[in-house]
Design a binder for these strands. Structure first.
Length: 243
DNA sequence: GCGACAG
DNA sequence: ATCTTGTCGC
């Protein structure tokens, strides 16, 4: 299927997610990490234009080495659970302009913390066959208790087991599985929802997000991508170090 | 049938 | 996500 054939009905999109979800890898397959990408989407013209922003940071300096913005007409509406079909086409357009392949990608949105375990981070990871982490600012599904107040600590995000979950996942006494972490990325601020996208485990996903944290709520990769996607013009070259 | 609902 | 002014705090 071509990139632009994603003119699916909600039913077809859901069927596709169920078919793809089993291919998502939740084990660590990370190699040496030297480049980390951050991806986010923004909109213009009241939503008619989709703007994909991509930043590439060098690890461990977290120095910005490349940034890309790609614009194209919006072709799908926002539907909870089907976000990837609306945003991935533009994201891929941005990746085509990137001169280097990242070793890890942090995406604004959920990974497997999704009703069918295929949030935008997982879907993008599958498509690019690269390790991805979902870094959401709010919850899509799942339940969680009180989140510790110290930076770096987190509470598990759990959900009832779904057919899309692997046969070997650990299920608790109540038939629930852990799909992500509600992370305190900064004291006194609403927590982040971190979940594995593709090719890495939850502990590893949380580790990388924490390692990329500065003084702000969002880790550097998505913080810079966020800024590039929201503000107009390309504003990331300098004045990036908030560490 | 009644809520919940990434960006 | 985006539309928007002022305001609180480091």
């Amino acid at each position: 299927m071509a990139l632009h054939d994603w003119n699916l009905t909600p039913e077809a999109a859901i069927a596709l997610q169920k078919r793809l979800a089993p291919s998502v890898r939740r084990e660590d397959t990370l190699g040496e990490v030297g480049l980390i990408a951050g991806m986010d989407i923004g909109f213009e013209d009241g939503g008619e234009t989709t703007r994909a922003a991509l930043v590439l940071l060098e690890w461990p300096s977290l120095t910005l080495v490349e940034q890309v913005v790609h614009r194209e007409p919006t072709r799908m509406p926002y539907v909870p659970g089907l976000l990837s079909f609306r945003e991935i086409p533009a994201a891929l357009g941005a990746f085509e302009q990137l001169s280097q392949r990242p070793d890890l990608i942090m995406v604004d949105g959920q990974g497997i913390a999704h009703p069918r375990r295929l949030g935008i981070a997982s879907h993008l990871g599958l498509w690019l066959d690269l390790p991805t982490i979902g870094v959401g600012k709010s919850r899509l599904c799942g339940q969680f208790g009180e989140v510790p107040s110290a930076k770096g600590e987190w509470a598990p995000l759990t959900d009832r087991r779904r057919e899309e979950d692997p046969s070997d996942v650990s299920v608790d006494a109540r038939g629930r599985v852990t799909i992500g972490a509600v992370l305190r990325s900064r004291e006194g601020v609403k927590p982040l929802f971190v979940s594995p996208g593709h090719r890495l485990s939850l502990p590893t996903a949380v580790d990388w997000v924490v390692r990329c944290l500065g003084r702000t709520k969002l880790p550097e990769p998505t913080r810079l991508a966020d800024r590039l996607a929201s503000r107009k013009g390309e504003v990331a070259l300098s004045g990036q170090l908030s560490l």
